[in-house]
Amino acid sequence: MSAPELELRDVRGPSALGGGWRRSWDLLFLIAVNDFKRSYLGTALGYVWSLARPLLLFAVLLVVFTEAFNLGERVQSYPVLLLFNIVLFGFFQESTSAAVGSILGQESVVRKTQFPRAVIPLAVVLTALFNLGANLVVVVVFLLVSGVGPFATWLLFPLLLVPYAVLTIAVSLILPALNSRYRDTGILWTVAATALFYATPVLYPLEIVSEKLQHILALNPLAPFFVLARKWVIDPSAPTPAEAAGGAVWLLIPAGLFVLTCVFGVWVFNREAPRMAEEL
């Protein structure tokens, strides 16, 4: 009995997503589920702990911004908006800051197996997405208790989440790719992420800052997501991203930055992926 003839196939070396989509997806899903299970089932208070961080941050900021800056009176449903924004921005922050060192952290896998490199940061984002889902449950409870909504536009929220996640993925690809070459990317990113936190309308709605600053802040590709999310989820009377930016034309800049970030992310990760094992 002769074994079936196997066809010789080229071995092309490591890549961002080698070995087929199916395999990459399986790996991605397994890693993210394992991570998620570990943080939620590993300890008795797993879920509570994962909520503790955004909730504590929320409590501190709420006191500061309502007491010191009086935002509570100037902005409609400010506490809910603050919690919602913190959870939403938390997804971006958690993903990107974990993604920076993710390839280095998985050294043993990268050095020993033909592992599709992109799966590692993507799994980080997916795990953060699971966390976001869990945190949003609390946000919804909080919204209903505070008497905000439900609005029909809540159903639109996933449409917003898709491009927001895409942007997060793009940044989460850029950072580990740079980090494999320049090891202080992680340190710089903690500073940059903090700056971004304040430059994005998380703590404040755009309309309360001066008009000039408003236009500048609206250039931030993250800003339109927060403006739109507020309008759809918290306050239907809030300005649209176009209004906040001072005209639809101004939205072309964050849109351009969005596309640029995505293209750069895919390009730089693909370029670095084959050499990542050597740089470790």
């Binding site: 071995v11 092309r12 070396g13 490591p14 080698g18 990268v110 050095r111 020993k112 197996t113 033909q114 084959p274 050499r275 094992a277 050597e278």
Partner: peptide
Amino acid sequence: LKIMASIYRA
């Protein structure tokens, strides 16, 4: 061996 295993690229 690492090149054969697609860990390094030739």
